[in-house]
Amino acid sequence: MSNASQNFVSKTILPPQPAPAGEKGAAHWIRKNLMATPKDVVLTILAIALLAWAIPHIVNWLFIQAAWTGTGRTVCATTVQGGTQPDGWSGACWAFVYSKFTIFMVGLYTPEERWRPALVAVLAILTIAPMMIPSFPRKGLNAILAFIVLPIVSFFLLYGGFGLEVVETQKWGGLMVNLVLCFVAIVVSFPLGILLALGRRSKMPVIRMLCVLFIEVIRGIPLITVLFMASVMLPLFLPHGWTVDKLLRAVIGVSIFTSAYMAEVFRGGLQAVPKGQFEGADSLGLGYWQKMRLIVLPQAIKLVIPGIVNTFIGMFKDTSLVSIISMFDLLGIVRQNFSDANWASPVTPITGLVFAGFLFWLFCFGMSRYSGFMERHLDTGHKR
């Protein structure tokens, strides 16, 4: 390089400069996301006007004029309706939810034994939470505790045995039923969905045909039909005197139904893995199951995390359909308690439904946020 050109080359690295004032901060975000075009400005104004009108009414009904304490319908009814509230009063009846809270959680579970579902909940948190923290050590031990030991211990704690009083599943209800169905369906449908997806891509015609037939038949009928078949039709094919617990039938039906959808999610992930990954695994001399376990499936599962979580969210909400076969999950037992004459009032039903909807949303939103966290944690270049 000549001396003349060296005069134009800086020999020091300049420090980074802050972004222009107009390109950062809340004002920039508002201008970029809410007022970028005239159409955005109009829609933003309409949305703000709608929120300004709706939010005060919602807050007023949910919190300000709500009835928080009481022991009967009088706290949730106006004087014209035989209650203590002034005429024209309109507010949520949270006293009803507070009074029935335990029933909404565990149904008609024996009152003296309700410490057992509480203990199962604590054990579930202590075993599942470490699995969800990427930096937590001993994932293999965590998996054994969460997916093998926990279900066995939970069954004997909830049902009874080994010195514990037996509590028939007919007494189970509320949110506990939804969580039991969801957890078992996740544990069963995840590996079964992987096997079905691999079977559908198999080079063996018989296995491929059976997997395709299973997936297409199950996906082609509603979940409510599967539940009816498991609850009504299955006993007809059993030998005389044999019976299968209703909760077990519902668990099997939900697990099979979810497995078919999970199979298609995993198949999409397998198709998204570049062909070179398969060829590279073959060049290393890996067997079929080694190739899938070590090379292909980790990449495929990472690519379809949104689809997996979306299927689980839909399945968790669909567990409320078990009320059709006379199992009182959270939504079913909330609706059942509307008929309690001690709490009959115009605002009782909508308050109970709002409470049930909020709990469903809370769990679904939690799964969605955790899905986003795992996507960011596992992002190694596929995301654009």
Rank of each mutant, 00 (worst) to 15 (best):
V273N: 05
V273T: 02
P274H: 10
K275E: 14
K275P: 12
G276W: 04
Q277P: 13
Q277K: 15
F278I: 08
E279N: 12
E279V: 12
A281I: 05
A281S: 04
D282Y: 14
D282K: 13
G285N: 09
G285K: 02
G285M: 09
G287C: 03
G287N: 00
G287I: 01
Y288E: 01
W289C: 00
W289R: 01
W289P: 03
K291H: 02
K291S: 10
K291M: 02
M292E: 03
R293G: 05
R293M: 09
R293D: 01
R293Y: 00
I295C: 05
V296P: 04
L297H: 08
P298N: 09
Q299F: 07
I301E: 06
I301Y: 04
K302T: 13
L303P: 03
V304E: 02
V304A: 04
V304M: 11
P306W: 06
I308F: 08
I308S: 05
I308M: 07
V309H: 03
V309W: 01
V309D: 09
V309S: 05
T311K: 09
T311R: 10
T311P: 00
I313S: 06
G314M: 07
M315G: 08
M315V: 05
F316W: 01
K317W: 15
D318G: 10
D318A: 06
T319H: 09
T319F: 04
S320L: 04
S320I: 06
L321T: 09
S323V: 15
S323H: 13
S326P: 09
M327D: 07
M327R: 10
F328V: 15
D329H: 05
D329W: 02
D329E: 11
L330R: 06
L330C: 08
L330T: 06
L331M: 08
L331V: 15
L331D: 02
L331F: 01
L331Y: 06
I333D: 01
R335P: 15
R335W: 11
Q336S: 15
F338S: 10
S339Q: 14
D340S: 12
D340Y: 04
A341C: 14
A341G: 13
W343A: 05
A344N: 13
A344W: 11
S345E: 11
T348P: 11
T348Y: 02
P349I: 03
I350H: 15
L353V: 03
L353K: 02
V354D: 07
F355C: 10
F355E: 01
A356I: 08
A356L: 03
G357T: 12
G357M: 14
G357D: 09
F358Y: 03
F358Q: 12
F358W: 13
F358S: 11
L359P: 09
L359A: 07
